[in-house]
């Protein structure tokens, strides 16, 4: 899909060295609806969102369909994901009462992981998390959870302790408090969303640029002859980035989950 967009640009493999897309935005926006139900338009991104949902549901359903005493290999994989999120991330970060938050953390981990891996799935090649909607939505949910938990556990002291930190000298207290207020309530959700978004946008751009360029040069071998060798380093570098992006996709899902847990932990035990 992206390769087609690139090829449709006026890139001349006979004169240029790399085929950069003229308008980057077109790589990420699919505005024309594939079909509509009532007033709601199903664009490609929307369809992929529901596809990701079904994949997550199917993976979890297959993994825990039966209570097997001797698990299958797939069951072991799913169980290790669940125990990793619940024991390492939730309990390890938040504390003994962290398993309360494990449904949420497991949901975001699985959803982001599948949405990220769409970047590398042949035929889809588009990370859902490179659209601001998904990361922002999840970041806002995390923000709501840690703010609500903070008020529920500590009452008004939650905000007062942040805005008026007792451990800081009086002269600087108002400044640190202000920075902390902005940092906790504004920057946390924004950076949480933008981190995921930016990583996937960058990865998707790199892959499209390198693999797309390689593909265009290879495809034009009839017109430009030996010059299509230029596509070889782009393609090789693209494959390298492909492997690297797999690590990034998993790591970003982990970091989003871990930071959500850490933010919730700071609301549960604000003294730390």
């Amino acid at each position: 899909m992206d390769v087609l967009i690139l090829a449709s640009e006026s890139c001349d493999p006979a004169t240029e060295i790399i085929c950069a897309p003229e308008n980057v935005i077109e790589l990420f926006e699919f505005t024309e609806p594939l079909f509509s139900i009532g007033p709601f338009d199903f664009t490609r991104t929307v369809v992929l969102t529901f596809l990701a949902m079904f994949i997550v549901l199917a993976l979890l359903f297959m993994g825990f369909r039966k209570t097997r005493v001797v698990p299958t290999k797939f069951g072991v994989a799913m169980e290790s994901v669940v125990s990793f999120v619940r024991d390492d991330v939730a309990k390890g970060t938040i504390g003994p009462d962290g398993s309360k938050y494990s449904p949420y953390l497991l949901s975001i981990f699985m959803f982001i992981l599948v949405a990220n891996l769409f970047e590398l799935t042949p035929g889809i090649n588009f990370p859902l998390t490179s659209r601001m909607a998904i990361p922002l939505m999840l970041a806002v949910v995390t923000w709501l959870i840690f703010v609500i938990v903070g008020f529920a556990k500590n009452g008004l002291h939650y905000v007062l302790d942040i805005a008026w930190p007792k451990s800081v000298p009086l002269a600087l207290r108002w400044l640190v408090g202000l920075i902390e207020l902005v940092s906790v309530f504004v920057l946390r959700p924004i950076t949480l969303a933008v981190r995921l978004f930016a990583n996937l946008v960058a990865g998707h751009l790199m892959l499209t640029l390198l693999l797309g360029s390689g593909w265009i040069f290879f495809a034009a071998v009839g017109d430009i002859g030996v010059r299509s060798v230029i596509g070889l380093p782009w393609f090789a570098f693209g494959l390298l980035i492909f492997v690297f992006e797999f690590v990034v996709a998993v790591l970003q899902a982990y970091i989003f989950t871990l930071l959500s847990a850490v933010y919730i932990q700071t609301s549960v035990h604000p003294e730390h």
Binding site: I190, V194, R195, I255
Partner: peptide, 24 residues
């Protein structure tokens, strides 16, 4: 190591925030 790793990611998150604001 587990505690250090969590704290490391937290520190990276705070530091990275500046780069992300630049990105935005």
């Amino acid at each position: 190591a587990g505690m250090a790793r969590t704290t490391m990611f937290l520190g990276i998150a705070f530091t990275e925030a500046l780069a992300l604001i630049g990105f935005v």
